[in-house]
């Protein structure tokens, strides 16, 4: 589903974010991407979305070679990805329903489909009863649920979550991680960057660890840190 082959990213400032990264993530996998701040986790996700282009190597996402993709095709790649943000990024002047519907409207979905699909996404994340509320009336955990509903409403093949529990208390963090696991069980590939040791250690999923832009560990059913 996601294939990095010898990928490097050097920014114009000379900063090297990733070096010679080769990773293969299969359809339906759940992967934690861990590592200290500045290790290249966010760049990894940005390369998948073609927010950034690699300066070396090849990246393939869902059969599309992202590194060679013409700019005009980038929106259509992104429609196959769902993205969840640490800071939720909900539009404060729009209701929960409108925030989720926004992802469908701006991707020119048939208007008759929008209502049922938003309803489905809100049911999936358990927020249907709050559809009419503005984000400011929701707790952090609830806002992130809406963020996840917005990510899955387009029925993406891959969900990318960048520190989705970074702004949440432990209980809310657990709920969000369970939700992402449930979405993964339906067949969606899920890639999560996190600093949350506890969640990674309890869930025991595949862990890819980055350090200074290099993959230093890729372990099935791994822990946040190496056992040694």
């Amino acid at each position: 589903m996601i294939h990095f082959d010898g990928v490097g990213k050097r920014f114009g400032t000379g900063v090297v974010a990733l070096q010679d990264v080769t990773v293969r993530i299969d359809p339906g996998e759940f992967v934690f991407l861990v590592g200290p701040t500045g290790s290249g986790k966010s760049t990894f996700l940005e390369l998948i979305q073609r927010i950034e282009r690699p300066t070396a190597g090849r990246i393939t996402v869902d059969g599309t070679e992202v590194s060679a993709l013409p700019s005009a095709q980038v929106p259509f790649l992104r429609r196959r990805l769902g993205v969840v943000f640490q800071e939720f990024k909900l539009l404060p002047d729009r209701s929960v329903f409108e925030n989720v519907a926004f992802a469908l409207r701006v991707t020119e979905t048939d208007p008759v489909e929008i209502g049922p699909r938003v309803q489905w996404a809100l049911d999936t994340v358990g927020m249907a009863s709050r559809a009419g509320d503005l984000p400011a009336r929701l707790s952090g955990g609830e806002q992130q649920r809406v963020g996840i509903a917005r990510a899955i409403v387009t029925r993406p093949r891959v969900v990318l979550a960048d520190e989705p529990t970074g702004n949440l208390d432990p209980e809310a963090a657990w709920e969000i991680m369970h939700l992402l696991s449930a979405i993964n069980l339906r067949g969606t590939t899920v890639l999560v960057t996190t600093h949350n040791h506890t969640l990674v250690d309890i869930l025991r999923r595949r862990v890819i660890e980055l350090h200074a832009g290099r993959v230093v560990r890729d372990e099935a059913r791994g822990l946040y840190q190496t056992a040694s």
Partner: peptide, 17 residues
């Protein structure tokens, strides 16, 4: 800008934005 950022990240074409 947040509205525009979300639009582009969920796959709105530049023309649509």
């Amino acid at each position: 800008r947040q509205e525009i950022e979300i639009m582009t990240l969920v796959g709105a074409t530049p023309g649509f934005v």
